[in-house]
Design a protein around this nucleic acid. Structure first.
Length: 699
DNA sequence: TTAGGGTTAG
């Protein structure tokens, strides 16, 4: 046999180790392995109903019928059975266990297994052990693994190679990697399945480098690898985001004649897109002889990952038209895309499709929906989806809390947080970020401070820079600039740009020139090319009447060649999106749009709206200044008003943080028109109703 | 004889 894998022997472990360990760590920390509330690794389910069933059973959220064991217990405990009777009774129980497992009634199978454990000496056969292992994997039950394994050991069960692999798999799938590795080391014989099993476990656990070490050892020991090995290793390369390694694996697969295998192709699409090469992913997808559901899912997710949300959505419709079956993965991906596009129409269709295709109870898709409705400003809908979920994990809770918090419902967010604690779930750093943001947006500074302190004290979670930045924002809003500055100085790590940016913003809001200057200078050192840092300081100087200093900032901007990118907003009207740039005059209805903006400005001026003093460069002529006043949000709103008489709510989305002036204008427009306006800036959503913004934030 | 592989959510 040709040895394409031999080239991997040229990769030293040091080379693998040199792969950025911080990236690796971030990936691991963000992976499900660390994030899910069950404390176990990656789960795989044949279909979502299995998932719901199993998770519900494990969490004890659904009542399950319990077999009446009392009589049998009595038989076993009180009546001494002779050897024949034990055998007869044991065989009957084993047969029943096997039938229960085959019907996916894993819990009940374990209830019966308890009888055998109490009796203690009945010699269970391979087929029963095999199905008990299946039950453990189905439940992802560590306790189940221990029970089955103890029983085997106690009764001197001597497994053959098949059973040894099954026992190994049981440990791997339940995340018991230390035990799995011990078993692996002690195995008298290891075949390809043994190697594939342990490697797959390492990749599931995010231990990618170790997976590569095993892969190399595997080649040394058995000089063989198959499609499954390659598919797993490609997943590992994706986890490490090492395209060069991924490419070598691709080359190996081609040399082995399995380059177009469905599993390999899907893994390659995912690897190329995660490594930043969407063209590579597209190439593999086009070359796939048969485009499967997973293939479509992978390429759509790849496009979405690279920010090509509209293209991804188009591919989804192409997938649907091609007649390929969609699954719960498809809908989870699509809902996330809708969140990025902030498209209610598409999300509604995806929500309907999810239910129609029978995946309405899938935890991942439902969580994506909770997140969508939360971000879109429909917290009630988010709560409604959440309430219908048969089981929720920490990710679902976090999405809901962020939804409440980002829309000014700080108290509700805190209530949900309390509920998490009452239910015995362990909050993670994302939970705390959502809760602290909620406190910040709703002005609950004392509660925010208490929670921030409780993070390390009570929950043993070390606050990260994002938590610090959030607290600085919170203190800054209260005008507690000295305290905010003290927090930066007291941080147990080097302050990050986010932290200084929060202090700079607070300094601008409260007109603290000295602190603003200090924060801006720190930011210049860290992000020398980031325009916004200069603009904020420029604002501070202009408002403080420091024209000389303001001119110096302008000079710096020019020297560096930093140009303000025109802001972009888009509005969805009658299922179609219309995009506007600042001062945009390309739209066919430009004339009407500008007339509408003028009349709105006239109306809102009567209500007391005064445009903010513009931060314009000194030599910008008046005509240009006038054009710049027509920000993209205002144009989009005017367009919406002209074209949608039944417009509610109107959504304005923009890629950059909007200026105070525009924010205030939108507030007034909402008041004048009595319309509800949902608007998103770079970091959060704002919902205006009768002129007031639900987030409680000020600009 | 049986077993091991690919894509989703905060």
């Amino acid at each position: 046999m040709e040895m394409p894998l031999a080239r991997f022997q040229n990769i030293s472990l040091d080379q693998l180790r040199s792969i950025s360990s911080s990236d690796h760590k971030v990936f691991r920390e963000n992976s499900l392995f660390s994030g899910n509330c069950f404390g176990i690794g990656r789960r795989k389910w044949r279909n979502p109903s299995d998932q719901i069933k199993c998770l519900s059973l494990e969490q004890g959220l659904q009542p399950r019928p319990k077999p009446d064991l009392s009589r049998v217990h009595t038989d076993v405990k009180e009546v001494r059975l002779d050897e024949t009777q034990v055998k007869k009774s044991g065989l009957r129980i084993c047969s029943k266990i096997e039938k229960l497992v085959l019907c996916n009634r894993f819990r009940e199978a374990f209830d019966l297994f308890e009888i055998l454990e109490l009796e203690g000496s009945f010699l269970v056969g391979t087929s029963t052990y095999d199905l008990l292992i299946q039950a453990c994997i189905g439940l992802r039950s560590v306790r189940g693994v221990k029970r089955v394994f103890n029983y085997m050991t106690r009764n001197g069960f001597e497994p053959d190679q098949y059973m040894r692999n099954r026992v190994l798999l049981m440990h791997v799938k339940c995340g018991m990697m230390i035990d799995a590795r011990n078993l692996f080391d002690e195995m008298p014989e290891r075949n390809m399945i043994t190697w594939n099993t342990i490697i797959s476990g390492l990749v599931d656990a995010g231990d990618y480098l170790e997976a590569f070490r095993f892969f190399i050892n595997m080649w040394e020991e058995i000089s063989d690898a198959d499609t499954r090995t390659l598919a797993t290793m490609i997943r590992s390369a994706a986890g490490l985001e090492q395209i060069s390694v991924g490419r070598q694996l691709h080359s190996c697969a081609l040399k082995m004649g399995i380059g177009k295998d469905t599993f390999i192709s899907c893994a390659l699409i995912d690897m190329y897109s995660k490594c930043g090469n969407i063209e590579g992913a597209q190439f593999v997808f086009v070359e796939m002889p048969e485009k499967t559901t997973v293939g479509w899912n992978s390429i759509i997710a790849g496009y979405a990952l690279h920010g090509y949300s509209e293209e991804a959505l188009n591919m989804y419709y192409e997938m649907r038209d091609s007649g390929v079956k969609m699954d719960h993965f498809t809908f989870s991906i699509i809902i996330r895309i809708c969140t990025r596009l902030a498209s209610l129409e598409h999300a509604k269709q995806a929500h309907a499709g999810l239910i129609r295709h029978g995946f309405g109870l899938d935890i991942v898709a439902d969580t994506a929906l909770v997140d969508f409705y939360s971000k879109w400003g429909r917290v009630e809908d988010a709560q409604s989806v959440f309430d219908y979920m048969p089981c929720k994990n920490l990710i679902s809770w976090n999405a809901l809390i962020a939804g409440y918090g980002n829309h000014g419902h700080g108290e509700e967010a805190l209530e949900k947080f309390e509920q998490i604690l009452e239910e015995g779930m362990k909050p993670n750093h994302v939970t705390f970020l959502a809760v602290l943001h909620a406190c910040s947006y709703s002005g609950l500074s004392e509660r925010g401070w208490e929670i921030f302190q409780s993070m390390s004290r009570d929950h043993k979670i070390r606050p990260r820079p994002m938590h610090f930045a959030c607290m600085i924002e919170l203190l800054g809003k209260e005008g507690l600039l000295d305290e905010a500055f003290a927090l930066i100085r007291g941080a147990p790590f080097k302050p990050t740009a986010n932290m200084w940016a929060a202090l700079l913003t607070a300094s601008r809001v409260h007109g603290n020139l000295e602190l603003g200057k200090f924060a801006a200078e720190k930011l210049y050192g860290m992000e020398p090319e980031k325009l916004i840092n200069y603009v904020v300081l420029l604002n501070i100087y202009i408002r403080s009447g420091k024209s000389k200093e303001a001119a110096a900032v302008v000079q710096t901007l020019r020297r560096k060649g930093l140009i303000m990118r025109p802001a972009c907003s888009w509005i969805e009207v009658k299922k179609q999106q219309h995009v506007f740039l600042s001062g945009d005059k390309c739209h066919v209805q430009t004339k009407e749009i500008y007339q509408k903006v003028d009349s709105l400005i006239h109306e809102i001026s009567k209500l007391g709206y005064v445009p903010e003093e513009k931060t314009l460069l000194p030599d910008v002529d008046e005509q240009e200044q006038r054009v710049l006043l027509y920000h993209s949000e205002k144009l989009a709103i005017a367009f919406g008003l002209i074209n949608t008489p039944e417009w509610t709510p109107l959504q304005i989305v923009q890629g950059h943080r909007i200026c105070n002036d525009c924010h205030n204008a939108i507030k007034f427009i909402s008041q004048v028109t009595q319309r509800e306006i949902v608007m998103r800036d770079a970091s959060r959503f704002h919902r205006f109703k009768n002129g007031s913004c639900s987030c409680g934030d000020y600009w």
